[in-house]
């Protein structure tokens, strides 16, 4: 190997140590036997995992976050899949503009979306409620569904659907038997990103916090501001494991190739 190649590899390895170390440390701390968060840990135990199941605010907010993620993702699919089907087959200038508009919630500062929505939804009478959370989360999840479904559907030649139509299939049959199975990987990938985004969101959910609507990240933030114990580490580790498992399952079902096309 050349010297420059060595330098590049050393740099890359240093980079990944930088990337992985802060995360790995948290995973290790979640198994600590100590009563405080420090590294290296004095011994191993599972007590902090037990603690999060005993601490009611964590469990209540986890339930809120799970419900919210599922409902916002379902709403995003209902709104986003038809829109994506339309937009991917249209090459006109304004279809490009509309696609850009529909993806634009990704580019707006989350804190502004959260702050503005709180006031607007309060004026509409929704206020700080679970329904408000669902609405705002759908705004930020919808782009993921539209993006992945558009990418997948664009790669599918229209000939498949045309063939089915010529052979006498009705519009609905073509959709059910041809289009839907072909775009399923896009819907799966979009739903996965959408759910993970909703589940992890803090800057928007923060504005809609109340005893009934606190999501898990909001409760974790509040907890961290007062205490610094390893239960936050245990929760984070569980969340990471959950995300990795979801990604691996989606990969097994639909293949990493199609998933990366979609991103």
């Amino acid at each position: 190997m050349r010297l420059s190649d060595w330098a590049l590899w050393v740099f890359t390895i240093a980079f990944f140590i930088f990337m992985i170390l802060p995360i790995a440390v948290v995973v290790v701390i979640s198994f600590t036997s100590a009563g405080y968060a420090s590294f290296p840990i004095p011994g191993w135990s599972l007590k902090w995992f037990a603690r999060i199941f005993e601490y009611e605010p964590f469990m209540n907010s986890l339930w809120v976050s799970l419900k919210l993620g599922v409902i916002a993702t379902a709403a995003s699919c209902l709104l986003g899949v038809p829109a994506a089907l339309y937009l991917s087959r249209s090459r006109s200038g304004w279809a490009t503009a509309i696609t850009a508009f529909m993806l634009s919630p990704l580019s707006m500062p989350m804190i502004v979306i959260g702050f503005a929505s709180l006031f607007f939804l309060s004026r509409l009478g929704f206020g700080v409620s679970f329904l408000s959370l669902v609405i705002v989360h759908t705004v930020i999840c919808l782009p993921y569904v539209i993006r992945t479904v558009t990418a997948v559907y664009r790669a599918i030649p229209p000939a498949y659907e045309e063939a089915a139509q010529i052979l006498g299939a009705s519009r609905l049959t073509v959709f059910r038997e041809v289009t839907l199975p072909l775009i399923r990987p896009g819907i799966a990938a979009g739903s996965l990103f959408s759910f993970l985004t909703s589940f992890d969101n803090l800057p928007v959910s923060y504005f809609f916090g109340s005893a009934q609507t606190n999501t898990l990240p909001v409760v974790m933030l509040a907890y961290m501001e007062h205490q610094f114990d390893p239960s936050i580490a245990a929760l984070s580790t569980l969340q990471l494991v959950f995300a990795v498992v979801a990604l691996v399952v989606a990969d097994r079902l639909y293949g990493i190739q199609k998933m990366t096309v979609a991103t």
């Binding site: 170390l21 802060p22 995360i23 790995a24 440390v25 948290v26 968060a37 992890d200 803090l202 990240p217 974790m220 933030l221 961290m224 936050i232 580490a233 984070s236 580790t237 969340q239 990471l240």
Partner: peptide
Amino acid sequence: SIIMRTFG
């Protein structure tokens, strides 16, 4: 999560 990284 951003919380996990900050904690780290």
